[in-house]
Amino acid sequence: MSSPATTASPASLPARPPAGTSGSAPRLRTPRTKRHSPGRPRRSVLLTVLTGLVVLYALVPLLWLVISTTKTQEGLAGSFGLWFDGDFALWDNISTTFTYNDGVFTRWLLNTLMYVGLGAGGATFLAVLGGYALAKFAFPGKRAVFAVVIGAVAVPGTALAVPTFLMFSKMGLTDTPWAVIIPSLISPFGLYLMWVFATEAIPTELMEAARIDGAGEVRTFFQVGLPLLAPGMVTVLLFTMVATWNNYFLPLIMLKDPDWYPLTLGLNSWNAQAATAGGEPVFNLVITGSLITILPLIAAFLLLQKYWQSGLAAGSVKE
C-alpha cells in the first residue's frame, strides 16, 4: 500500500503520510470524525471546570498583559493591575510603540522576522535532513550521534557563551546577523522528532522503488522523503519559531548594533532605560511591544496547528 500519488506530486503539500506498510491504516492521522464512532462521549462539566482552572492559571497573567496595554505609563504604576484604568490608551500605546526612537520597533520586528525565517527555517531543514539520515541510513558513528547531541545539550549554555563569543569574534561573525542565525540552526529536540518521525513516515520500500527507477539520493529525498515529512516539519518549525522568536541570551552577547537587535533585545533595552540616570521609563511601550510580539506567534500557532497532531504524534507513538 504505497502512495504513488504522493510521490508523483511532491508539490502537493501537506502530503498525507502513508499509513505504513503493515496495514495499520489510521495510525498516523485518525480522521476526527471516526473517533468513538458508536456515539460521541458525553461532555463533562466537571472535567471542563477542572481543565478551566488550568486555563485560568495560564491566562490570568496574560490578562494582566492585555489590560496593561491599555494603560499609560502613569496609569500602569498607579492602578490595580487586573482592571482597566481611566484612560484607554491602547491605540496611543500601539502608535507610540511603532514611532518611539524613530520607529526602531519596526526595524526590530523585521530583524526578528528575518532571524525566524532563516534561523527557524534553517533549523527545521537541518533537522529534517539529519532525522532522515538517522532514520533511513546506516552509517558509521550513527549510534554516537544522538549521545553526543544530548551530552552537548547538557552542558550549561551560559558558560559556553564567552568561548562562543571569542570564536565567533575571530571568525568576524559577531555583530552581524549570522551570529544570531547560525546558533539558531541547531534544534536537538527537532532532530529527535524528525528522526522518529522519518522512521515511521517514510516506507523504506518507497525509497527503494525510487532508486530502482534511477533516482539519485538527493532526488529521492526531495521527491519521496520531504513530502512525507511535511507534517513533522511543521511541528519542528513551530517549536524552532518560538525558540528563535524569544531568543535573548545569545543576541545579547553577540550583537552591539541596535540596528540588528531582535525584538526581545530591543524591548529589554527599553525596559532597562527606566533604570538609568535621565532615562525615561516606558514600561507601557515594553508591555505593548510584547503583546505585539506575541501576536504573530499566536497566528502561527493557529495556522499550523492542524498539521501539529499528526506531526508530533508520530514522534512519540508506535505500536
Binding site: 571569542l166 575571530k170 568576524g172 555583530d175 545579547l252 552577547i253 552591539k256 548594533d257 533595552s269
Partner: peptide, 27 residues
C-alpha cells in the same frame, strides 16, 4: 558618530570585557 546602547552598566561591562578579550569590535 554611531552610538550603541549595548546594555546598562553591568551588561555594558560584559560587552566591553568580551570585546577586549576578543581584541575585536572594541568601541
Amino acid at each position: 558618530v554611531k552610538v550603541a546602547n549595548v546594555g546598562t552598566n553591568s551588561d555594558a561591562y560584559t560587552a566591553l570585557s568580551n570585546a577586549i578579550s576578543a581584541k575585536k569590535g572594541v568601541p
